[in-house]
Design a protein around this nucleic acid. Sequence first.
DNA 1: GTGAGTCATGGTAACGCTACCAGTAATGCC
DNA 2: GGCATTACTGGTAGCGTTACCATGACTCAC
Lengths: 363, 363
Amino acid sequence: MSKPARRTRSRFRGGATIKDVARRAGVSPMTVSRVVNGNSYVSDGTRQAVQRAVRDLGYSPNLAARNLASERGERLGLLYGNPSSAYLSEFLVGALDAASRHGVQLVLEKCEPTPVASRRAVRRLLAGAVVGVVLPPPLCESAAVRAELNAARLPIVTVAAGRPPADTMCVRIDDYSAALEMTRYLLGLGHERVAFIKGHPNQSASEERWLGFTAALEEAARSGRGERPPLQMEQGFFSFRSGLDAARKLLAADPAPTAIFASNDDMAAAVIAEAHRRGLDVPRDLTVVGFDDTLIASTIWPELTTIQQPIARMAAEAIDMLVTTVRGGRGAGPEPSNRRHRLIPHAFISRESAAAPKLRGRA
Amino acid sequence: MSKPARRTRSRFRGGATIKDVARRAGVSPMTVSRVVNGNSYVSDGTRQAVQRAVRDLGYSPNLAARNLASERGERLGLLYGNPSSAYLSEFLVGALDAASRHGVQLVLEKCEPTPVASRRAVRRLLAGAVVGVVLPPPLCESAAVRAELNAARLPIVTVAAGRPPADTMCVRIDDYSAALEMTRYLLGLGHERVAFIKGHPNQSASEERWLGFTAALEEAARSGRGERPPLQMEQGFFSFRSGLDAARKLLAADPAPTAIFASNDDMAAAVIAEAHRRGLDVPRDLTVVGFDDTLIASTIWPELTTIQQPIARMAAEAIDMLVTTVRGGRGAGPEPSNRRHRLIPHAFISRESAAAPKLRGRA
DNA sequence: GTGAGTCATGGTAACGCTACCAGTAATGCC
DNA sequence: GGCATTACTGGTAGCGTTACCATGACTCAC
């Protein structure tokens, strides 16, 4: 029999193909491909002709075909833990953007930090054929999750771990320096009794922030500015509730602190709430600062002076690293460490919750 | 010359292909495809053999190839406006999940609700070859954005608009009923002076909620329970700050309300903050309820009694609708209206910020 | 003037999968 | 028994793109 009737697949939806562009520009598809992908070895005249044809036809390359031909389109996993939504949303925006830039798929998976749950989550990821995983906090600190991932030989990028584990790549800010900087600012304002609320002990960023805080205090003591005040600190757990408890204790002390540095914004918000309940004005009677610059920092009133992490950028960076890794680092051998560890600059955000102390503390 | 040297593309990364599975199961690739895609017309024996082979080989279909062959893999746009992160993150999780289920790409684009910005954003989306757009609040109410999108003939699904525009598909909850329900609850608790803080006037959901509130009040008045109290209402704008202003006015009134229903959680949180500042205990002295069940509702203390929108589910539903639409509704003609409008059930979330009023109000 | 580059372009064969047809065997119906 | 129908399976031809040569046309050195 003759050859089976030529198939007429819909050919309606998707607009022009690379062939259409090639025909219109009077070149071969290959040349179009080169122009579109910014490849060298195309003469200026040809390039412009192709570009015009692309514009005229409204051509945009078919992602599926491109991925198939170039063996791209890998799937990357994003394991997220407790729904710290404000963080997560920014994170997702950054990650998604980077993912679509690289033409990779992003697969989300929720996971509690227990061994059982993490095993299950990793299995699901593996079933989804992901080839690398991003670990935002707090999962980046979960040994269980990391162990499971390592067992599956998946490359990992942790984001925002205070002290990144040695067996993963990481993107983070310098929690220590940021806390140091913030504390110096508080001291510079003239505060002498600055209290600190620690973050959750299971996260190394908590410790780093605490270390930065004490370092600034010691620095000030050494330089002889004022006598060394007693250290006021409460353990918190990053939750609003824990911040409330800590604030209660801190504000009941005599003398009470004139400034409180909370390890994150939720706890700082709680401090403000407690201060208000006691009839204290922020920042006139009490300075309160946070860390992270999550949504709540600019939601509440007064808005929080805090440290900003460029979360979206960090997420994008993490995806970049993962893509580079799974696509083969070109040069053989393990990545140089500067490729494995990225330190992103943070920013000091001055808003309304911090001011110089009143002369002579309250009774 | 002889045929050009056989290409040896990496063939390392991606595991088994459909052919490997076919060989192992002793069937043709087509049959494997049918099994994997849940197609009918495969005998039980064959199906099981194939499934075993799939498991053994850890086969997982190549998304790019599948998309290419079946002309799937379209790009869908997600235009988001002000970074109401708590909302956005849940939204993204749901949307991403649905997107990967359907094998479509999700392209995010940020956009202010001005004509200029929306024109630009839509142009970018078009350049990215998206074939449909999801519009979460507050963009779903922007006529400018919708006009721009309609001009580009892109199908739209608005999410959580109080009164969905006629020219789009939509997924939403019944804001009116939810507010009605919440108000009935408050009334049922025994509150007689229930105040309301309206949402931003540029969003139709605000009006719906207000209508639900007043309807419940009228219902109670008609049934003769208690004399009809004066209506206490303040205009808010969904922001914490506006909630604070409203709360100040409401709580300064005499008699002050015993319960305040804020149109969203941020404003409810502000009411609590202001109540605390005045030395009022929530819920003993004042009941406060919110709407949306965003992150802040369970962050603050006491946690908010509120109305929950299943945001992730709504987002997923929106993606589903878009995919159905762009893949061609099978049957010709415009979609039936029940396919174009989906009403998702909301939930009443009882937490700690509401209680029965004290006997005899405060002075 | 020959050989060895560089630059610019084109041809061909995949990439892994599914749509579309074409069977074959079993079943039902008159 | 003939013939349509159904249940199942396989072959073939792409889907739109890029990788990998091959091919010319030049340029440059010796």
